[in-house]
């Protein structure tokens, strides 16, 4: 094709989008230093390390709580299943039980119901990570100069906070199950926070490993029900036969339920006429050990999630 010089054109510019002033030619001075301009983020240049991580966590935590608080319907729906268990299951068994043993059973069930209510926000946080990946929001975070582990920890703290909110809502129903309002409930609440954190960490670990929201949904519903039923939430974990006993003993939820039950004011723990928690041989692990197990689980889940998350390539 013929080369020729560009002359002044008769026609208007073909392009309606170009601003009236044509762009200045690119900077021709190659010696120019990229950093002569004082960096606008000079005040954040020292911003590495712990301060930055804490800030990241706070930001992510704040986002989770904003999202949580905004979705009133979800909060209400998250309460439905626990209430069903507490009120319907308890009342439905009415005909087979005396008044006294029914009250006992409700009290026995109560810690499991608390635990169940904590599941919902944990799953929701995991799901939100999967959706964030789908919607691209995750990538926006990944390109920010923050540590990925801090992003995850902040998110889990957000999930734990939502869990505690649910926990409070259910604990308010305590008197229905013969659990009195008692300062000891604060201790229970602390445990609920830890359990919620562990749950969220598990959910987040699953979310980081699973790409598709549908798969996540299926995986979660496949895991949650068996975990719950085989946890000693519905029946005493002690003295179960063979394989069932083994499954219950390796189920981390068992220890969460038992710790809650033993800390809970009232006498739900004594329903079977004695301690009903899991036993290792003849040794009954104390509450502190059970709590420690949950904490270890949370840390492990978080470690797995962080490892996977740090390698995420979008």
């Amino acid at each position: 094709m013929a080369q020729h010089e560009l002359h002044a054109r008769t026609a208007a510019h073909p392009d309606p989008y170009v601003p009236a002033e044509p762009p200045a030619p690119p900077d021709a001075d190659p010696g120019r230093d990229a950093d002569t301009r004082p960096p606008p983020d000079a005040d954040t240049d020292a911003d590495r390390g712990l301060g930055r991580d804490l800030r990241t966590m706070r930001v992510l935590w704040h986002r989770e709580t904003l999202r949580f608080g905004r979705n009133k319907l979800r909060i209400a729906m998250g309460m439905v299943t626990p209430l069903m268990f507490l009120l319907v299951l308890g009342t439905g068994l009415n005909s087979t039980m005396s008044e006294d043993s029914l009250r006992d059973f409700r009290a026995f069930l109560f810690p499991g119901v608390v635990l169940m209510s904590v599941q919902a926000p944990a799953i929701a946080v995991g799901a939100s990570i999967v959706w964030d990946r789908r919607s691209g929001f995750l990538r926006q975070m990944l390109v920010a100069p923050v540590r990925r582990s801090a992003i995850l920890v902040g998110t889990c703290l957000g999930g734990a906070t939502s869990g505690v909110v649910y926990g409070v809502l259910v604990l308010l129903l305590g008197p229905v199950a013969d659990v009195p309002y008692h300062p000891g409930l604060l201790l229970v609440l602390l445990q609920v926070g830890l359990v919620a954190f562990a749950f969220t960490a598990l959910g987040v670990a699953a979310a980081v490993c699973i790409r598709r929201p549908e798969t996540f949904q299926v995986a979660v519903s496949l895991c949650m029900m068996p975990l719950f039923f085989l946890s000693g939430a519905m029946f005493p974990a002690d003295g179960l036969p063979g394989w069932l006993g083994t499954v219950v003993r390796v189920n981390p939820l068992t220890y969460a339920v038992d710790a809650l039950r033993r800390t809970m004011p009232g006498d739900g723990a004594a329903v079977a006429g004695g301690p009903s928690g899991p036993r290792w041989g003849s040794w009954t692990p104390p509450v502190a050990v059970e709590i420690g197990l949950i904490a270890v689980l949370a840390v492990l889940a978080l470690a797995v999630a962080t490892r996977r998350f740090s390698r995420v390539e979008e």
Binding site: D41, D45, R63, R67, D132, S135, G136, R139, V143, P145
Partner: peptide
């Protein structure tokens, strides 16, 4: 990351 801004091709808002 500290020095760049990025607008993705696809929407990435919450």
């Amino acid at each position: 990351r500290r020095g760049i801004g990025l607008v993705f091709q696809e929407s990435t808002l919450d």
